[in-house]
Structures are given as C-alpha cells and as structure tokens.
Amino acid sequence: MKKLLSILLCICLTAGLTACRKNNEDIQEAGNSVELNFLVMPDIEKVSDVFKEYEKKIQL
C-alpha cells in the first residue's frame, strides 16, 4: 500500500513540475510573440541573412 502511494506521489510531482515549466515556457513564448514560417528553396536560402536583418529591425 505504502509503495503504491509513494509511486503515485512521484508521478503527481513530476506531472506538476512539467506543467509548471510548460506554463512558464508558454508565457515566455507569448512575450516573444510571432513566429513566421517561410518556405523556400536552396537558392533563396542562401540569402537568409536578409531575413535576419528584418528580425533585427523589428527588435529595435
């Protein structure tokens, strides 16, 4: 009986901690807000530095 309870307790603790961490991550992500997905091909991927320029510009 004791064994079962302690296993159950461990599971609950782990689940709770993971949930808290996920919550934190979500809040952080919401702060960082938007992620845009850009589909390209290799010839255009070469100029991805141009895209990074935009990210920098937005941060300002």
Binding site: N32, S33, V34, E35, L36, N37, F38, L39, V40, M41, P42, I44, E45, S48, F51, K52, Y54, E55, I58, Q59
Partner: peptide, 14 residues
C-alpha cells in the same frame, strides 16, 4: 519575432 526558414529542393517545394 522570428522567421523560421524551411528549405526544400525545387520540385519538393512546389
């Protein structure tokens, strides 16, 4: 804001 670049070969991208 972040831009994720996903690159596929020409035909696969289409």
């Amino acid at each position: 804001m972040k831009v994720n670049v996903e690159s596929l070969p020409f035909d696969k991208m289409f």
